[in-house]
């Protein structure tokens, strides 16, 4: 059992199988919502799965001049990074599968892996579109990553812990940290769009400009892995934001303590799924309402309009804690 249980957690729940299944479902919700916003019908529920299976069955091509090892390895590293990070994000109760003081930093680091992997994959595929896309990935990283980190520090300082599980537990008494860090929450949501490379920050992919950029040479299985990476990153990113700001699986009026463990887990799970879907709704809305901006506009805008509010919020929290503590 000592081996089987962690393996089950990583591979099935809340790991690979669950993340992929939920990711596909969230992707359907996303596509359907955008379709509704755009006055279209939208795809049937099994469409994302069908797309995935189709990709898996397609021919897999490695460009002649590409670095075979890097080209093959990076999508797997990206997917592994995202799936591994779920170990530290609370998915059904206030504590995650595993936790230690500082796991927030580890999760943030592992969620950055896809961006670096995408850069390397694009760079080593030696296609002009991929090369330009790869440099855009890195430029964009500077735009959103620092504000995202600063935004996540807000609740960490307010809760006085560097562990996501601790931060979630601190919200157990009902007061969500969005009340202490509203600016940080907004910043984190917008930075998440950049992380997931969605409109208006789908600059590295920009299909009408550089033909999906770093992914342009990827086909078949490997492209499917990239798609899976971003599907699962959507879920993990949204779960992280809801754990930090929205109380994770908590909801006012539900007496988790009085329930048996399995029921509390189930209800917590459902609450979290709803919260994640609400974040997906926000992502879809942004995609439907906005146009893609340019890379230099994006970096400039993010530094000013994401960086400064995140810093201000941290400053306010630190000031309040100091006053209260003294």
């Amino acid at each position: 059992m000592q081996v089987v249980t962690p393996l089950f957690h990583v591979l099935v729940f809340p790991g690979f199988v669950f993340l992929v299944a939920f990711g596909l479902f969230a992707s359907w919700v996303d596509r359907k919502l955008i379709a509704k916003f755009q006055n279209r019908v939208g795809p049937p529920i099994m469409q994302p799965l069908a797309d995935l299976i189709k990709l898996l069955a397609k021919e897999d091509i490695i460009p002649e001049h590409a670095d075979r090892a890097m080209f093959t390895a990076v999508p797997l590293v990206a997917l592994a990074g995202v799936i591994a990070s779920v170990v530290y994000v609370p998915m059904w109760s206030t504590t995650a599968l595993s936790w230690f003081d500082g796991d927030l930093i580890v999760v943030l680091y592992m969620l950055t892996l896809p961006a670096f992997a995408l850069f390397l994959g694009g760079w080593y595929s030696t296609n002009p579109f991929a090369t330009i896309g790869a440099t855009r990935v890195l430029s964009q990283l500077f735009g959103y990553e620092v504000p995202f980190l600063l935004a996540c520090l807000g609740p960490a300082i307010a809760a006085g812990s560097w562990s996501i599980s601790d931060i979630t537990i601190a919200q157990g008494d009902g007061l969500w940290l969005i009340s202490a860090a509203p600016l940080s929450f907004v910043v984190a949501m917008i930075a998440l769009i950049g992380k997931l490379e969605r409109v208006p920050f789908d600059i590295p992919q920009a299909k009408t400009e550089i033909v999906t950029g770093p992914e342009v040479e990827y086909t078949g299985r490997r492209l499917a892995i990239w798609k899976l990476t971003f599907l699962t990153e959507t879920i993990v990113g949204a779960a992280l934001i809801s754990a930090l700001f929205l109380g994770g699986p908590h909801l006012w009026g539900i007496p988790f303590a009085a329930m048996p463990t399995w029921l509390a887990g189930l209800v917590g799970m459902i609450v979290l799924i709803v919260k994640i879907l609400l974040i997906v709704l926000f992502l879809s809305f942004a995609q439907a309402a906005l146009a893609r901006i340019r890379i230099e506009q994006m970096v400039q805008w993010c530094v000013v309009w994401l960086g400064i509010p995140a810093l201000v919020n941290i400053g306010v929290i630190a000031f309040v804690i100091r006053q209260v503590g003294a």
């Binding site: 755009q38 006055n39 279209r40 208006p200 920009a206 439907a288 309402a289 906005l290 146009a291 893609r292």
Partner: peptide
């Protein structure tokens, strides 16, 4: 034009 700048909703609305 909407499509070229990634503004798909404009494309869908105008073509409708």
């Amino acid at each position: 034009a909407g499509h070229e700048v990634g503004f798909e909703t404009l494309f869908m609305y105008v073509w409708r």
